[in-house]
Amino acid sequence: MNIIVCVKQVPDPEAPTAQFRIDEATKRLRPSKSVNLVANPFDMNAVEAAIQLKEAVGGKITVLSLGPESSSDVLKQAVAMGADEAVRIDSQAGESWDSFLTAHALAAAVRKVGQFDLILCGRQAADTNAGQMGVGLATALGISCVSFASRVEPRNGKIEVERIADKGREVFEVALPALLTVSNEMNHPRFPTAMKLIAAGRQQIPSWSLAEIGFDAGQLSGQWAGIEETEHFIPRPTTTCEFVEGETLEEAGEKLALRLRAEKVL
């Protein structure tokens, strides 16, 4: 099974919130210098899913990322985990890429990769939280798409996919080629071994320019209205916490029960 995985580099979503500030001039959230750029966690679930499929039925995994030079780190990580090939589609920092343009650029890159059976994406990016790109890419390529996938198994040239419903799961049989957006429930991404990570770290990740994949943003402009962000702001919790204490922690526990009773919460 030939699998393409799309990954994105994002500011570490688990960095302490204090390390994110609003830039007064641009009114945008700006991570401090100490926030590392990491692989979007959901995309790593997609990479892991691809590796498990390859381990089950064989095939080849190609990982794509649209981003500046630093995105190569994420691709190297995917290679260390077990991907066969990785290509970065070169974009510059500061360029504005909405879900529509990104989906169409990745569609062009997918066409350049050539034959594929399955495309895997994370369910959403940890920075924009948009959750549009995967479905958008499937639409751009005209292939079937299952979002929020929590399980995938190859079945007689097709795949059986379970997706997360509001209650329980829904199971589908999907003909290939298809695209899945992968949810964190599907797996725990593996850590690569030190040896493989070092080898991948020394590799050169090839990059394709937008011209090389035949992508022209100008051609698409005006075809997609999109939304325009005006500002970011940080919501602040306004609660004051009443700390319940006691001689011992057991006593504190009992006191808390009494406080909750007094407040008629119990």
């Binding site: 609660t239 319940v244 011992t248 006593e251 526990g253 808390l256 029960a257 406080r259 909750l260």
Partner: peptide, 24 residues
């Protein structure tokens, strides 16, 4: 969590919670 909580206890839950459960 204490920035959002109305009531809080700082301590090991294995000590706090059994007493809290019993009292509740």
């Amino acid at each position: 969590i204490f920035k959002y909580a109305h009531f809080g206890i700082v301590g090991d839950f294995e000590q706090v919670v059994p007493a809290l459960m019993q009292k509740c």
